[in-house]
Design a protein around this nucleic acid. Sequence first.
DNA 1: GAACAGATGGTTTTT
DNA 2: CCATCTGTTC
Length: 789
Amino acid sequence: MIQFPDFMTAVQGTLDRTITPDANRGQYDAIESALDRSLFIVAGPGSGKTMVMALRVLKLVYVDGIDPSTILVTTFTKKAAAELRSRILGWGDRLRGVFVENPVYANYWEILHSIDLNQIVTGTLDSISENILQEYREPGNPAPVIIEEFIANAMMVRYGLLDGGRFRNEDLKSYLQDLNGPWPRLNTGGMAEILIEIKDRVFHDQVDIDAFCASGADSGIGVACDAIQAYLEALEERLLYDYAKIEQVFYQKLVQQDLAEFTSKIRFVLVDEYQDTNLLQEQIYFALASYALQNQGSITVVGDDDQSIYRFRGATVDLFTHFPARIEDALGIRPELITLSKNYRSTQNIVEFVKQFVILDETFQEVRVADKPAIEHAREEMEVNYPILGMFRDDIDTLAQDLASFIKDVVHNGGVQISQSSAMDAIRVDADRGGSPADVCVLCSSPQEVKNNGEQRLPGLLRDYLQDPPHSINVFNPRGQNLGDIPDVQVLCGLMLTCIDPDHAIEDGMRTIPGEARNKFATWRAAAQTHIRQHTERHGGMTLAEFVRSWHKRTPRDAFLAKRELPLLDLAYKLITWISPMQHDVEGLVYLEVITRTITQSAVFASFGSEIIFDAKNPELEEKSIQDAMRGIFIPLATGAIDVNEDLLETIPSDRIPVMSIHQAKGLEYPLVIVDVGSDFKDRKSPAFKRFPSKGGKTCDMEDELRAFSSLQLPRRSGFDRAFDDLRRLYFVAFSRPHDVLLLIGLNSVKDGYYTRSRIHKTIPNVATGWDRHGTWNWGDGLPNIIHI
DNA sequence: GAACAGATGGTTTTT
DNA sequence: CCATCTGTTC
């Protein structure tokens, strides 16, 4: 349709991207490459791989005239999927605008207008599996229901462990205990978690479960398999799916040709972040690719072995590094290798720093793609080449305080001048420069604000100090907070509890409520009382106090209450009329959504379907329905079992500082990135697995345990080496996020060592601060390679 | 400064 | 459960 040179000219004109065969060979080839040519793109950080993906798709549509509904594009996280989709749609529309105005293509005017880019199948593999199974299901079959993690756990507890008294089985206990590592007393919930992990790995690694079961290496294995089997049967009976199962079923239907209507048209498969693919996903991609090949299309995979950071989810980097051989074996094709190593994202200093970091450990080179070219600085726009910065303090409180004032200076106070280089521009992202707090990003291994023992972690302290006046700034860290600690959530939950169980008679009568949940319930109820006192306005002719009292007396003054079976969902919606943030505020709506989702999901499983039964003749029924709600909804909310779902918060508010895990930051970029390389490492007791492991740990043990029964075979690398490889990759991802400024933060214990009483302790070894696995500190002594502020 | 005994406290990442 | 920390002693 459109001539390729015209396509590229339009790209240059509208998107301001110049891609020439001379300067950007790899990118150019990847976009231009023939329809039936499969591609293996090895792309370093900042090399424009998402852009290449999007432009290749658009080239297929506009230049080759391919029907958008025959193209399938997937990536690994919901965030990345949303990003990719919006780029394809956004750029696609702008390019279309150029083409329709070009008189040369007047004949195509109608065709161009009829192209519907929304037909392109995009999303994570899970969401695509779900959608396709739903869309192409047999008439009369219900749509698949995917359960959330806490429901999966509850089901494993009930059907896997309580049924048949398996939770008491000593063999099973000791087997799971061993897998869990050196930890005391596993409770039933803990056992369920490990069983779920085993079950996921069985799917992800395509483990021959019968062989595993029969291996008899441990007398607990048989019982574990029984428990998993019971769990899967419970899912089956209720027509429920968990994440692993939905992919497994999708795969089976693909190979059994049950989805012919879908597979007959699929022609192009493009996979981003391929380095985090597991065996099950690889099988799905290969199955999709074989249909694509039948339809004269091809498969394109893009990834970077150095950024594979999802081993705990079954990601096996070998599937990426050996992709050409594996797909040749499976489908008999030889994909073309394209390497993108130019970095268009970061400054010279950052590129250099990242480059050094990735080659610093000799043993790590063994697992990288063979002959991988070094990352090359190629940013064209003007840049101030700031040095890599470091902020290290004696204790976490001082660190948080100093970091908060640094951030405030950068955002509000005209910037921060780096003293060593007075000629250099100040670091600033203030509004005068078109910047905002969202240009700064804090990355850590975990965004949790509070430790299990109640102590604050750096993200929590940072939230507090940033909020302090003057120039109060909010952080955006929805995953770091326990849902049950958020004020609006406390009010809503407290009000619901007060309504259904006013004098906590039922709560007191339940012996199985964890202490943690009981305490939280008390906090919620208190928050509710305060809220009732402060909100005396009438809605529907009633004050909040009157509404709650009418529930208390069970006297239906309200038509809503006259019903005998009351869905908790209705109660929640009624109550929020007195909680305005849950009606209007962006974040409040997200929290409300999470609560209502929890209520809906619990109905999948609870005997009363999240309804409260009022029956004067049968008070027992009422009590049981309330207990059910406690177990299914309020205890999970109180104990932190419910996570805020990613897809609910795709837009980060621009007036907040985002705080996130490095995993969440994969594929994202920010002008100023702050990486926590050591706020958790006060002394040598601090978790070694996060900085300088002594062994593989749980994930590697699990891999070793199950991969013997998978076609993947046992990993060739030791657990120790895999643990180090993973840490290097993790911080490689973190360090390669910034455009302009990279600031490392941590305690002095990872820089100069630390004192306890009169004893002097050596620096705590840490991969993120330049140690290799043999204990050599390449950036010693005291990190002289960075400028300390 | 070394050596020992008793105390301490601690695992994260996501579809 | 066990590596590391802390207190005490010589």
